[in-house]
Design a protein around this nucleic acid. Sequence first.
DNA 1: GTCTATATATAGATAGAC
DNA 2: GTCTATCTATATATAGAC
Lengths: 223, 223
Amino acid sequence: MKFEIPAHHTHPDKPAGRIRQKNEEAILAAAIEEFARHGFKGTSMNSIAEKVGLPKANLHYYFGNKLGLYVAVLSQILDLWDGTFNNLTAEDDPAEALARYIRAKMEFSRRHPLASRIFAMEVISGGECLSDYFNDDYRAWFRSRAAVFEAWIAAGKMDPVDPVNLIFLLWGSTQHYADFATQICRLTGRTRLTKKDFDEATDTLIRVILKGCGLTPPQAEPA
Amino acid sequence: MKFEIPAHHTHPDKPAGRIRQKNEEAILAAAIEEFARHGFKGTSMNSIAEKVGLPKANLHYYFGNKLGLYVAVLSQILDLWDGTFNNLTAEDDPAEALARYIRAKMEFSRRHPLASRIFAMEVISGGECLSDYFNDDYRAWFRSRAAVFEAWIAAGKMDPVDPVNLIFLLWGSTQHYADFATQICRLTGRTRLTKKDFDEATDTLIRVILKGCGLTPPQAEPA
DNA sequence: GTCTATATATAGATAGAC
DNA sequence: GTCTATCTATATATAGAC
């Protein structure tokens, strides 16, 4: 999955890699916007270069080629995801843990909508660049998440809802607010979704899904 | 929204439009597959022409240009959607009507996954080609759908769940099975989602969402 | 390390023979 | 109505001056 970064040497009077780090971050930020808007094939290196204000030759110097830049963007996104999940355990109180998980997913949709959209477009397009990510470890991680629900069900703490489809319900309903924000704004007459919009949507999701699983929502905790 | 079809005349010894109709259908079918996989900008007229087995000049002859073909594909998809919705009324029994709606949406995801994905990619990409579709009529239609839930709530037939976010919950959770089928297959070790997979997912969605709205699911009716 | 100029491939679109 | 050949624009990528 990793791409080759061309060897180079730095000027002695400047800290090694400072310019590189700054430029790479700027390029990645511009690339995220373009890839989120046009997908991989629909994005041109030229448009990214113009947005970041560098000649496109620099993009090739830093990331090798277009696929290398795209994979770097995807890697950054997946790092974000890994940091957001993994907070559910069988010992948790189901209602509290599930509410926390829905809040975390909605907060991700609010703060990283472009990342969510790039991931969505990649999966919709077949997800070939994610084949290394969709591996045995990923399946094992997914089973461990489903096992938490199974444990709660076995302990009689929640209704016997199929854990696999419950997870897809959680993902689909929360990611929708990032991926389909354009449609939501058009339908509700907004120009963008506010923090308040997300809070209300989060409350609705927590209320419906928890009750649907036979759980009593915990008292709202301050954001 | 409509594009110009070039004027032409037909040979007198052949029924007018027979060849055209057949070719246009074949081109649209191939275009749906390509656009669903690569999005608008990522799809080339050449790839569509090769898939359908016609020279690409024919595609331009029938649809004018690439955007015309894309809009024709989108129009066909939106026609499908219009035929699927609009079955909820305030007079319906909420539990039965909602279960029916979830079934219809899931059946759409199962039978028209490519259509769902093209719509999703278009919305994620900003939905400029849908700006004519996301108009005042669409907003009015959406409010009429939300009003059905409000009527049910006012009549005490279901919990006071915010109708707008409930609709997004329904859309997000059902469309997920079409748009993210690749990820679902990787996670569950399947090569494709079967009718049985969809039936089980549908049952889970109906069970959780209806109970979450304070409704008692109706007895399962045969598909 | 940076950027201009350019090589090469492929895109959308069309002219014109049949 | 159909299809070959071609035009023009733009894409990725790189060579080489600075």
